[in-house]
């Protein structure tokens, strides 16, 4: 289940782009999940583990992906750390929910803004209040004091 801590969380890795650049694994890039996220958010196509075709930059390395996509991959594949998803826009929200569904273990992320998880139902534990919420109406009421 997805767990979110809203507000300052010193143990969360804040500069996810730097962390990604120094730690990502080639095999992350070519998974079906990563291909879909990169296509959806960066409008780019994965050509290989080391090469991505961007409509803006042309051929580019994975380190040049958007901060949002890099953070999503860290959340999906690095199980040893907590990441601040500050550079994930609302267009990353559905992918965070999907990653949480795919991963069977407990996922923790840190947010300092109220991400819009859309109109649908979901299951998120707000760690600040230890309440489980199932839609944006409930999430807003639990999180609004901490952002």
């Amino acid at each position: 289940m997805l767990n979110i801590y809203f507000g300052d969380m010193p143990e969360a890795i804040y500069n996810t782009s730097v962390y990604f650049r120094n730690t990502y694994k080639d095999k992350w890039i070519t998974t079906e999940l990563s291909r879909e996220m990169i296509r959806d958010i960066d409008k780019s196509e994965v050509l290989s583990e080391t090469l991505i075709q961007s409509p803006i930059f042309g051929p580019m390395p994975p380190t040049q992906l958007s901060g949002g996509v890099k953070t999503l991959m860290l959340i999906a594949y690095d199980r040893n750390h907590i990441f601040n998803a500050h550079n994930c826009g609302d267009n990353c929200a559905k992918w965070i929910l999907k990653i949480a569904q795919m991963r069977k273990d407990r996922i923790v992320i840190n947010l300092r803004h109220l991400m819009d998880f859309g109109e649908g139902e979901f299951k998120i534990r707000v760690m600040n209040t230890n309440k489980i919420v199932r839609n944006m109406a409930e999430l807003t009421l639990q999180a609004v004091d901490f952002v």
Binding site: I41, I56, F57, S66, G67, N87, G89
Partner: peptide, 24 residues
């Protein structure tokens, strides 16, 4: 690769929005 054009009217401007739009 990219061209940006914008006008600042005050001392503080905040840019946010979706990922992948070119902020970084």
């Amino acid at each position: 690769f990219a061209k940006y054009m914008f006008e600042l009217r005050r001392n503080i401007t905040v840019v946010r929005g979706d990922s992948g739009t070119g902020k970084t």
